[in-house]
């Protein structure tokens, strides 16, 4: 990916062209299933973003539905990062733990998280806890398995260096194993961030009293296609925003990694 101005302009030009074509085509068709982008954008503004400055321009609907969804994603991902990161390093560095847990992890990973929503509903009842559990359970696997791999494959020369210079255990962990694991951890996090959005919508569709998925259910059952489309576009924008945020954090944390791989002057 290049951030050169020319390339950047080209990327936006392609998006703009699609939006313009859609606009022209939708106005021409007049189909109620495919409202024009201008109508969708207007609806998004009315629905969520026309609130007072004191509420960060969010409408009551934005506060009541968008923020809870964001909070659930944040909570679910935070649990997945904490559990996946800590357990991943522990399992990756322990031959015994790896041996015992590997078959179990491979099995659990293959389990689609959405199939567990009924279980989580039974365990936690409908509501935030169930949704956070779904997101956490679904997103923990890419982080956990990548972190295990990363921790397991710390360069043996680096490990030997740490032993030769007698780094104490804690420093070996914080100055060698954790930094060396970071590239793989972030590879997992990237996958998990995309997954989190899907799981959030699914869990909220399955049963919730607020949230973007709940709002989508409402829009669908009231046959308000512009509302449905507004929700879809909102989710697409959120997905992109999460990816950009993840990339920014990764860019900051892994400058050395790009450099060492020869991708930075």
């Amino acid at each position: 990916m290049s951030w050169a101005p020319g390339r950047l302009a080209a990327r936006w030009a392609a998006i703009a062209a699609v939006v313009v074509l859609w606009q022209v085509w939708a106005r021409h068709q007049g189909s109620s299933f495919f409202p024009p982008p201008s109508a969708i954008a207007d609806r998004m503004y009315q629905q969520w973003f026309s609130g007072p400055a004191s509420h960060l321009f969010l409408t009551p609907d934005g506060v009541g539905n968008v923020l809870p969804s964001l909070g659930r994603i944040a909570a679910g991902l935070a649990i997945a990062v904490a559990v996946g990161g800590v357990a991943g390093v522990a399992i990756g560095r322990s031959v015994a733990l790896s041996g015992y847990l590997d078959p179990l992890l491979q099995f659990a990973r293959a389990l689609p998280a959405v199939t567990l929503v009924p279980v989580f509903i039974a365990l936690f009842r409908l509501g935030t806890e169930m949704e956070v559990a779904t997101i956490a359970f679904g997103t923990v696997w890419p982080i956990l398995l990548n972190t295990i791999d990363g921790a397991r494959s710390v360069d043996p020369v680096q490990m030997e260096t740490a032993r030769a210079f007698r780094l104490p255990g804690w420093q070996r962990l914080t100055k060698l194993i954790i930094p060396a694991t970071m590239p793989r951890f972030f590879a997992g996090l990237r996958l998990s961030v995309s997954l989190a959005l899907v799981l959030m919508v699914f869990a909220e569709l399955a049963g919730s009293s607020n949230g973007i998925g709940y709002e989508m259910n409402n829009a669908e059952s009231s046959f308000d296609m512009t509302w449905v489309w507004a929700t879809i576009v909102l989710l697409a924008l959120l997905g992109n925003a999460f990816n950009l945020l993840e990339q920014a954090v990764e860019h900051r944390m892994l400058g050395w990694h790009r450099g060492a791989r020869g991708r930075m002057p």
Binding site: Q158, T161, F165, L176, P179, W256, H257
Partner: peptide
Amino acid sequence: GLAVVFQDYSRSLFPWL
């Protein structure tokens, strides 16, 4: 009181430091 210089300098130095 012992120190080691390894052959593979590119792997024995930590690239994140």
